[in-house]
Structures are given as structure tokens and as C-alpha cells.
């Protein structure tokens, strides 16, 4: 490449970078973060409340024929092949609202049943997707979980198929 071409390329990049950042911001606000893009994660959220902090969690409760008590699975246990860095995003995208979960196709429900069976074993009846808000307070010995609030519970039935 000639020097002139390289210079023109640099000028184009210098113009493009802020434009793409703007586009990432706009699309990210209305949809989700575009890819590929030249951005790093902002981690702009500030997790703080009076005297402590709150954290949103999602867990799965698997009910089997053999037991009345559900087996509680964390997302990383139900989806062990998903890298931990992607698990919260995956959960947010697919398991954050009841309507989305209830609209899963039979193929998806069967796949989830297979995943749950790998961990729970036995004959599965259903699986609840439970969204929780955990509240932690700062004590002398560190952070202490002082309460948990259930925000949403959606049941995926395996038996009715």
C-alpha cells in the first residue's frame, strides 16, 4: 500500500471509530450490542443500595417423579458448556420474562429436559425458572445475604408433552 493510501485509510478509521461507537450505543439501547464492533465492556452499572447491595439471580428448580423436593440447579450447572462469562447474558436474553419462556417450542423444551436430566436423573416432571433478587448487607466480617425476594416463577412442564 502506498503512503497516501495508508493515510486515507487512517483518516477513514478516525472518522469511523466514533461513528460506530454512536451506532453501537443506539442499537445497543434499542436492541442489543452489535457485533463486530471496536468497543470494550463499559461495566457502567453501580451496584449500590443503602448499607449494602442487591443482585439479581436466576436459578432452576427441577421436579422429578421420585422426589417432592426440587433439585436446585444454577445456570452454570444446567448449561455447563456455556463459558461462565456468557452465562449471565444468556440467562438475560432467554430466561428473563415469562412470556418468552412460555413460548419455547416443543423442541426447546425437549432439549431443556435432556439438559436437566443430565444433572437431576430420573423421570422429570417439570422445571421452574425462578428469578430472585438477593439483598446483601455489609457487615464487619464482609458481605452478608440478609434477604431474598422471589420476583418471578415460570414453570416448564415436561409431563404434558
Amino acid at each position: 500500500m502506498s503512503k497516501q493510501t495508508v493515510k486515507k485509510f487512517f483518516i477513514a478509521v478516525l472518522i469511523w471509530l466514533p461513528i460506530q461507537y454512536g451506532i453501537v450505543g443506539i442499537i445497543g439501547f434499542y436492541h442489543s450490542e452489535p457485533w463486530p464492533a471496536f468497543v470494550f465492556p463499559g461495566f457502567k452499572n453501580v451496584y449500590v443500595y443503602e448499607g449494602g447491595f442487591e443482585i439479581a439471580q436466576t436459578r432452576f428448580e427441577v421436579f422429578t417423579v421420585d422426589s417432592e423436593e426440587p433439585m436446585i440447579l444454577q445456570p452454570r450447572e444446567l448449561f455447563p458448556e456455556i463459558p461462565l462469562s456468557q452465562v449471565p447474558g444468556f440467562m438475560r436474553t432467554h430466561f428473563s420474562d415469562s412470556a418468552g419462556i412460555e413460548s419455547f417450542t416443543p423442541q426447546t423444551v425437549r432439549w431443556l429436559e435432556r439438559q436437566a436430566a443430565l444433572m437431576a436423573g430420573g423421570e422429570l416432571v417439570s422445571m421452574d425458572v425462578v428469578s430472585l433478587m438477593e439483598f446483601y448487607s455489609i457487615a464487619d466480617l464482609g458481605a452478608v445475604r440478609d434477604s431474598v425476594k422471589e420476583l418471578q416463577r415460570t414453570t416448564i412442564s415436561f409431563a404434558s408433552r
Binding site: 471496536f38 470494550f40 456455556i82 463459558p83 462469562s85 444468556f90 438475560r92 436474553t93 432467554h94
Partner: peptide, 9 residues
């Protein structure tokens, strides 16, 4: 494409 982008470009 599972719903989470990592910044590894």
C-alpha cells in the same frame, strides 16, 4: 449468537 457478546475482537 447465544445472546452474549464477549469483547475479544
Amino acid at each position: 449468537s447465544i445472546g452474549k457478546v464477549n469483547h475479544e475482537i
